[in-house]
Simulated scan of single mutants.
Amino acid sequence: MVLVDIGNTNIHIWIDGKTINKKSPEKYNGRVYYISVNKEKEKIFKKLNPDAVNLEKYVLFDTAYKGLGIDRIMACKSISDGVVVDAGSAVTIDIMQENRHLGGIIMPGIYAFKQAFGTISEVLQFNPDIINTFYPNNTSEALNMGSVGAIKCMIEKYSQNRKVYITGGDGEFLSRVIENSEYIEDLVFLGMLKTIKELEKK
């Protein structure tokens, strides 16, 4: 079985439990399931894999949120209770309770914060780090508190003692910052596998 997550920048592929990343669509053998947020790459992918199944058509997900992306849906579907954080170019924070999606927010990711500070002044440069002081005493600490600290505060605001499940490119780093959190690289694929099991029961 092959699972494919077609993102805006990269294509994430899960083959028998192993994950790889590609820039361009490829042809795959066997049963292929996919989700996509990139229509252009999806067209190329479908030409190469005409029998691939788009799971977005079959996913069951309880939410009142309008316009929730299929990648966020699959990540959230993988858990029943807790907070799902996808830490990439943007950071999404979604709250799940008894298999129901209560809502979620979108905020800039760490790299987006770095870019934004750089447009203000060339001296506002920093490398993401774990800050253990409440009162920053240099520019690097101050920028980290204003970016990593802002993301941390928002996650904690919505977690309220719930378990936090983190995925995405900056997920492993953020999991070291957020208490009661777990980094799960394949969160989206776990949601896709759950959807396939539901589909096979029909």
Rank of each mutant, 00 (worst) to 15 (best):
G146D: 09
K114Q: 11
P108E: 11
S140C: 07
D81R: 00
V123K: 14
V84P: 08
I120L: 15
P108Q: 04
G88I: 13
L102M: 10
M96K: 02
N144G: 01
I95D: 02
V83T: 14
L102H: 06
S80H: 11
I120V: 15
V84Y: 14
I151L: 10
S89Q: 06
T119I: 08
R100F: 09
N132S: 14
L143T: 07
I131D: 05
D129P: 04
G109R: 01
I93Y: 09
I79V: 15
P108M: 02
T139K: 05
N99P: 06
T119Y: 15
G82N: 07
G88Q: 05
L143C: 07
P136L: 07
M96V: 09
P108A: 01
S147P: 08
L124E: 03
A116G: 03
I151E: 06
L102S: 02
M107T: 08
I95N: 11
T139A: 04
N138D: 15
T133W: 00
V91D: 05
Y135V: 15
P128R: 06
V123P: 01
E98K: 12
G88K: 12
G103S: 13
N132K: 11
M96N: 02
I95F: 09
Q125Y: 06
M96R: 02
I95W: 05
G103T: 03
D81F: 09
E141M: 13
V85S: 08
V91M: 15
G88A: 04
S121H: 04
V84R: 07
F134G: 12
G149C: 01
N127P: 00
G149V: 10
N137E: 14
Y135C: 11
L143P: 04
D81C: 03
G118S: 06
L102N: 06
Q115L: 11
Q115E: 08
P108I: 02
G88D: 05
D94V: 04
I120C: 07
T139Y: 06
I106F: 11
G104K: 11
T119P: 02
Y135Q: 03
N138C: 15
V85H: 05
F134I: 15
A116C: 13
I93W: 05
S147V: 09
N127V: 00
N132A: 04
S121R: 11
Y111L: 12
I151F: 00
S89P: 00
Q125D: 11
E122Q: 08
G149L: 13
D81T: 10
A150M: 13
S140N: 13
G103R: 12
N137H: 09
S80W: 03
E141H: 08
S121L: 13
N137Y: 10
A90I: 08
Q97W: 01
N99Y: 14
K152Y: 14
D81L: 00
V84H: 02
E122F: 07
V83A: 12
V84I: 13
K114C: 03
A112G: 01
Y111Q: 12
E98W: 01
S121I: 07
G88R: 12
L102T: 12
D81N: 13
F126Y: 14
G149I: 08
F126C: 11
P136Q: 03
V84Q: 01
Q115P: 00
E98T: 01
K152N: 14
N132G: 15
G118V: 02
K114N: 04
P108D: 12
N137Q: 13
I131M: 02
V84D: 06
Q115S: 07
S121C: 06
D86L: 10
